[in-house]
């Protein structure tokens, strides 16, 4: 019985154990609360803009500047007026009843003597995502696909099928490239 009591109360061991347990508890509580209060930065990579680049048909590495008399955004009353660009950001319709957007381009030559109208209709899946409680929720557009187009298949190359932007970047280069169109 005496031996049993001896084992039951080995003072040094108990002291080390108690100390270790207290330190463990303290560190876990500190770590827990620091994790609870860390909401993270409000970095949002969601966008409804599609990034299209225009390249030369003869050399896909070279940019080509395309003149648009207008670009009509389907599902909206808005259109983009005369523009000359080597790349564009085109907004897809955020209306929750729509899962596709059609763009109508009127492309012209340099003296506007020759005009051509092309269409591009893209479909997508919209997924809501809560970024953080304070940042709120955003729509992510994924599974982007061409539903209908007047461009021939060799003229369009698909890159990313999600609409994304680098939240730390700026300008058109911070948007993921979705399509390249060759002229």
């Amino acid at each position: 019985m005496q031996n049993y009591e001896k084992l039951k109360r080995p003072r040094v061991n108990r002291y080390i154990c108690k100390l270790t347990m207290r330190i463990t508890l303290l560190i876990f509580i500190c770590a827990l609360f620091s994790a609870c209060f860390s909401e993270g930065d409000c970095l949002v990579s969601a966008t409804n803009y599609m990034h299209i680049q225009f390249k030369k048909r003869s050399n896909h590495k070279l940019d080509t500047s395309v003149i648009f008399n207008y670009i009509y955004f389907g599902g909206s009353d808005s259109a983009l007026g005369k523009t000359q660009a080597t790349e564009l950001l085109l907004p897809v319709d955020i209306n929750n009843a729509r899962t596709n957007t059609e763009f109508i381009f009127q492309i012209a030559n340099s003296d506007n003597s020759k005009q051509q109208t092309d269409t591009l209709q893209v479909g997508y899946t919209r997924q809501g995502e809560v970024i953080t409680k304070d940042c709120g929720a955003y729509s992510f557009y994924i599974d982007l696909k061409i539903l209908k187009t007047s461009f021939d298949s060799a003229q369009v190359k698909v890159f990313s099928t999600s609409l994304l932007k680098d939240p730390t970047g700026s300008g058109i280069a911070s948007y993921a490239i979705n399509y390249q169109i060759y002229f």
């Binding site: 966008t47 409804n48 803009y49 808005s78 983009l80 523009t83 950001l89 907004p91 955020i94 929720a137 955003y138 729509s139 058109i172």
Partner: peptide, 8 residues
């Protein structure tokens, strides 16, 4: 959700 202003 809001669509941010068209950049151009």
């Amino acid at each position: 959700a809001t669509s941010s202003a068209y950049p151009t």
